[in-house]
Structures are given as C-alpha cells and as structure tokens.
C-alpha cells in the first residue's frame, strides 16, 4: 500500500514538475515544530549557510524566508528547489505567553502582532508552493486541528506532501501515531537539530518529489 502511494505521488510529481525550474518547496506546520531548524539543516548541508534563527520562544519565524536554488544530490540523483520557510500556523496568539518566556510587554505585543501577520502570510503562500514538507513535533498530538487543517488543505489542492516527524531524539516521540494520523502520506522520523536520520529524509525527498 505504502509503495503504491509512494509510486502514485511520484507519478503526480513527475507530471507536475516536468520541465519546471523554480519548484517552491514549502516548510509548513505548527509553531515550534522545527521548520526553521530543518531549513537550516538543509541550507547548511547543501549551501553551507543557515537560513534563519531558531528559539524556544514560539513564533520566532514571523515572515516567509526563501532560499533559492537549493540542489540536493545522491549518487546520480539531483533535485533543485527554492526552499520556503514559513511561520508556524496557529489559531491563537496571546502576547502574555511571550511575557512568560521572559520578553518585555512591549516586545511581546510587537511579537504577537508580527506573528499574526506571519500566520496570514503562511496561509496565503499555500497557493504558491508546489510541494510541502509538513514538520510536526513528534512529542505533540498529531491530531491537532491545525495539523488536520493544513494537511486537509494541501490534499484539496493536490499538493504533494512529505510529513516529517521531528525531534526523534526525544523519548516521548511516537512516530507510529503520526503515521496512523496521516496514513495517506509518507512519514519520515528525524531530528533536525542533531541530524539524526537526515539521510533518510533526503532519500524520502527524492522518492516523493522527484
């Protein structure tokens, strides 16, 4: 079944991407799932430079960031794309939560305002991306409505999707639960922070998005 799904996605991708040069590969997911950490890992591995700052405070990424012409290689295989790192999608943003993380009231209100704009931009960008890596924190409940809404919208748009179950270095991660939540998509478990199983992730990119 998995082989069939993988083959189906590959066929769709071949049709979609044939002859296209500027594939936009989006990183989507809820805040603090590790999108920017993964973006940095990819950019560092293949371009030698990082893409954005990461923080334990939610909504560190508040604007769309694009790294153009990232080419990943494995043997004779090659895949080139523009990597689009997006702000985490949330249904609520309370500046008081940032105060709890040690920011001043003024900084917190500014961050909250920028974060709401970031979520809006991320949603608008759903129309612009050609394929998406959904980055989920493997320690969190995969059935959250934000996850279901993002993936439901990608499915409705027929956008090819690879799901990353991030933070596998932590014991609480339950990759099987992520797989059972989204059986229609391939799931790869990694630690973007430590690079654990990152080669499997790149192989999955070739399989799903070639």
């Amino acid at each position: 079944m998995i082989a069939f799904i993988s083959s189906f996605i590959s066929r769709v991708m071949n049709t979609l991407f044939k002859g296209r040069k500027n594939i936009k590969l989006g990183l989507y997911g809820p805040p603090n799932g590790g999108k920017t950490t993964l973006a940095n890992r990819i950019a560092k591995d293949w371009l030698g430079e990082e893409m954005g700052t990461v923080s334990a405070i939610p909504h560190e990424t508040r604007e769309i960031k694009i790294k153009e012409q990232v080419t990943i290689k494995s043997g004779k295989k090659e895949l080139t794309f523009n990597l689009v790192d997006t702000p985490g999608i949330a249904t609520k943003i309370d500046y008081e939560d940032f105060i709890k993380h040690g920011l001043s009231e003024r900084e917190s209100k500014k961050r909250a305002k920028e974060a709401t704009k970031g979520v809006i931009d991320a949603i608008k960008w759903l129309d612009n991306v050609d394929a998406v890596i959904v980055v989920l924190d493997g320690t969190k409940d995969p059935f959250s409505q934000v996850n279901l809404t993002i993936i439901g919208n990608l499915a409705a748009r027929n956008t090819p999707v690879l799901i990353v179950c991030n933070k596998v270095d932590l014991k609480k991660v339950k990759i099987k639960k992520v797989e059972s939540a989204f059986p229609q998509y391939p799931v790869v478990g990694i630690s973007a922070k430590f690079g654990t199983r990152i080669d499997e992730f790149y192989e999955a990119l070739f399989t799903v998005f070639r």
């Binding site: 949330a90 249904t91 979520v119 809006i120 439901g152």
Partner: peptide, 27 residues
C-alpha cells in the same frame, strides 16, 4: 469546508487584539 477552515484561521489572525486572543478549533 477545508478551505473555509483555513480561512477561519486567517480571519481570526486578522482580528486578534488585546481582548481577542484567537480561537481553539476542533472538528
């Protein structure tokens, strides 16, 4: 509809202020 769900999130973000912090949503 799925596209209405994401639009609901977008509209919610547009209206967040000091009194309205957003929503929790479940289907």
């Amino acid at each position: 509809k799925k596209e209405e769900e994401i639009e609901l999130i977008k509209t919610t973000m547009e209206e967040i202020n000091e009194d309205f912090k957003g929503i929790e949503l479940a289907v």
